[in-house]
Design a protein around this nucleic acid. Sequence first.
DNA 1: ATATATAAAAATGTCGACATTATTAGCTTG
DNA 2: CAAGCTAATAATGTCGACATTTTTATATAT
Lengths: 233, 233
Amino acid sequence: MNRSPVEVDNNRNNSALIVVGELKQDILNGYFQPGEKLKMARLKERYQVGVSPLREALSQLLIEQLVVVENQRGFKVHPVSREEMLDIYATRAEIEALCIGLAIEKGDDEWDAGIMAAAHKMRKFGGLVEKDPQEWERRHQAFHTSIAIGCDSPTLMQVRRSLYEKASRYRNLWLNKNMAESTVFDANQKEHESLIEALLERESINARELIREHLLSPSRALETSQGLTALDR
Amino acid sequence: MNRSPVEVDNNRNNSALIVVGELKQDILNGYFQPGEKLKMARLKERYQVGVSPLREALSQLLIEQLVVVENQRGFKVHPVSREEMLDIYATRAEIEALCIGLAIEKGDDEWDAGIMAAAHKMRKFGGLVEKDPQEWERRHQAFHTSIAIGCDSPTLMQVRRSLYEKASRYRNLWLNKNMAESTVFDANQKEHESLIEALLERESINARELIREHLLSPSRALETSQGLTALDR
DNA sequence: ATATATAAAAATGTCGACATTATTAGCTTG
DNA sequence: CAAGCTAATAATGTCGACATTTTTATATAT
């Protein structure tokens, strides 16, 4: 039997694409634990589709390294490790520094304006971090994206997005335990302001070093947190 | 009906993964033209599998941006454009420079040894480029990989591989027309020697600039070649 | 003749069914 | 009682079938 005549989604996408999004979120925010086996029966139940769209979705996440597959043994959530976490964060820091270096070379007024706008939205939400961490993370990310976008390279931005997603998986596994320590948060905010200053002044070397530090500090925090020790099992 | 009882492949992989490899090659070397519609009937015929493994394979190449999909309108080979070509090559140059910079920081004797070994295999094949361009490209790539691997970052190497594949698609579209001009080739060889020298001397800034030039020259050649003008239609 | 509407043909996306393979449970034996 | 074998149970991977949608071909009207 096919889908009901009254379609719930007006989407232009097929089921697989829809499932990709939901499944990705479920993996990133930890609904499906690292290493967990993804049984077809359960997935069918949860997303209300057959195996074909599911396998297509899983195939996509396979390339994005969020799931792994073994022949005749099905799919599993990509396992986590301290080693991989450090590698992803380190790479992410270098890529972001690269974006910023290129962006500063090409930067114009419009780029500056975009950064100021995003920074404003982020600052305005500063006090509500503990109220709605999700929304804050969105604005935080939008701020950094407004900077990186100045590199003017779709290819590089694609790489950047992929790394962000992998990293956010580790961040979420940790966030669920250690909720927003305000000391860490305040330090973060100051780093943002220094970064903006360096960008507007086109201080490339300085900005790149600032962003490296900014992106590496979470990985240092994660390394010693409860979250990751739990991941060692 | 299922596959014949006598399996042709002793592979540990499922059909989808096998098809991924073959289909990827067919796209990269231009058997399927940019923008070409990938009709299921034809793919079934060519790879001797049903639609399920095919859709899985296509879903993977979708993320790798080698194919595109439109709902109810099937899959197409990802189109090419001069713009994208330049962006991919530019990004690739930056990533390779990044790998080399990190590798020089961490480089030890083993790294040097690996480079020398790969360089030797490449030099030995120097005269046979026109005889077997495929094999030369393999050794050329192995040489560059032996350098980049020193960055010691699986994540970064993954990014690098993906970019190499996308770039090689453009290179192949061009290679089929302009076959190995020896002047270009000789210049290439000299660049390799300069690069090796800089690496062994740990001259980071110099090496990074050399690799950027080395990787950007093909894109400059492609830009004005017949190959790409044909791609503009 | 061009444009519009209609019918026919082709192609896509999804499901259920089934063969194959892995996993578990129960049983035997040293 | 542990270790190995066997039977059962469960899960995967692939195909053919079918409903839905797009594309092509044909007919009609302005």
